[in-house]
Write a protein that binds this DNA or RNA. Sequence first.
DNA 1: TTGAAAGCGCTAACAT
DNA 2: ATGTTAGCGCTTTCAA
Lengths: 338, 338
Amino acid sequence: MTSDDKPISAAASIPGQKATLHDVAERVGVSPRTVSRVVNDEGGFSSATRERVLNAINELGYRPNLLARSLITNRSNTVAFVVPVIDDPFFPEVAQGVQAAARDRGLTMFLAVTEGRLELQRQVLERMASHGIDGLILFPHAEDLDDVARFAGQGLPTVVIDDALDHPNVCVVRSDLEHGVSLAVDHLRERGRTSLAMLANEASPRRKLRRETTFRSMVPNGIVVKSPPTFEAGYRATAELLAREERFDGLFAFNDVMAAGAITAIIDSGRSVPGDISVVGCDDIEMSALLTPGLTTIRIDRERLGAEAVSRLIQLRDSVTAPPASTLTVSLVVRESS
Amino acid sequence: MTSDDKPISAAASIPGQKATLHDVAERVGVSPRTVSRVVNDEGGFSSATRERVLNAINELGYRPNLLARSLITNRSNTVAFVVPVIDDPFFPEVAQGVQAAARDRGLTMFLAVTEGRLELQRQVLERMASHGIDGLILFPHAEDLDDVARFAGQGLPTVVIDDALDHPNVCVVRSDLEHGVSLAVDHLRERGRTSLAMLANEASPRRKLRRETTFRSMVPNGIVVKSPPTFEAGYRATAELLAREERFDGLFAFNDVMAAGAITAIIDSGRSVPGDISVVGCDDIEMSALLTPGLTTIRIDRERLGAEAVSRLIQLRDSVTAPPASTLTVSLVVRESS
DNA sequence: TTGAAAGCGCTAACAT
DNA sequence: ATGTTAGCGCTTTCAA
């Protein structure tokens, strides 16, 4: 049964029996405390001791038990990242930024998806809190920040992305979407478009408001249609708009996924993009460059967004006062759809 | 400063001072052991006691400290999911499947990205192990499964996706890509295509082999070009192939992202899809339906793949012998690119 | 049905 | 430079 002819160890069933600090100490002939000092590089040991301890660690394949450490330090070095969905490529790309930044700072990332359901968000937060996460980064459920506020109130450092929450344990990181909308609208007008419509996100009151409100204020007579932020919904909403014979020659969509749906609907209706209608999206997900026509859009730097969130979270954790909200700039990427 | 006029609590700086099992016990007037029994529903308590304990838990907002529990039970109820990249939509979608399945079974998911770098994979696994994960699900680094084998050897239940590793602590979950290739090739031939080429993944010896080998055996005279599995690389490889004046009228790509690159390259060269060349991809990521022309592809059910991985992992953890490898069926989705 | 004691693996707060 | 004691919050074992 055993793969080679080594003597069968005492605990035959568990090959790699985990070594503890104690085991290392015993083997070297020092106290566990000394090993701990070396492991954490606290100083207070001779370099000879250090050497011997390090060797023993290698020989035994010792690996610190982070759970035990966390229990006493009250630091788990874990972060939770919570997103509503993951089939919109925007979120995974932010996740990548969060994970990379977290990893570089010695943090490990939990990822959870709430499917936009409030009760799932609550369950997820509950469980994350039980795991003793050091901090939380999330795109909060649009309707209700109460849960988030509750956990923050219990002392959980929290970074809220693209939403607002005034709380000493909460820091906000956002993209400058107001500016994004103005870039989009200005661009459409420069293209000679005079009747503008917006495909807004029905599911996201506060976040929507940022884009929708800006749009409304810039385009008082503009048409605003709300739909879920998916390809299919964007398609349907646009098709209905066209069927109603509403006149518009420029469309700004809440995100690229909806914009893609809109383009397809416009083309399916026998119109052309950008011949009849110019379309501008928001996010600049990878797909947007691959569409036909390529999608003109407002670019959000997701990696940076994720990294910024981690950085703010750490500031929040390590300081008494919450750092101010940070706002990341966005830019216009012009492709063929406008 | 305080937001309303509640009396300032004793511990002014820490509002939600975390309640422990002990606190609950004290408040109810029972021993911690009894509270523990109720929390874990072990039985051995009167329903009256149960009631009072539950009340106290609510009042104090008690939440079990999973770290402490794990330390003693040696179960953390966490799983690590490790992927090479995340900007290929295929992986996030599997991640969603893993996370949902994990959540439903009371597991929390760590997500890590290795960027296809072996040293990053090692670092990630090392850290995950320190966190005491109960299991690991990964798309392993293509060149080298040694690290994976090492951790499995130390007792870590591991599910390897789309690769092979023979080890009692490892279970393999894969898609039936051999069948997928044969579906693709048969389909291209039914479309009257006689000179077939394949865009293979240079970075993935073993996985590639599955698709590439099948292709070679079905199409002895076929052209096989290798490139990294990205849009740009797929574009470049295809452009070069066309520039070399190689004759082919049907193309099968390792994945949809490469196929999308190929289509763009073909169109940019002045040829048409599927007029001159039919293209078939693999994965059926969301984007594939949105391309122009819509991409014909081999569909892999990512959610199911993720769910299956979790399910196998749990079998692995809870049994002595590794469950057999499972293979998920794939199907052909015909769109306009062929 | 309940509780007391021990200890998971580690670090904090003292020793020396 | 090193060791000792205590205990993080919980479950386990054994006893009542």
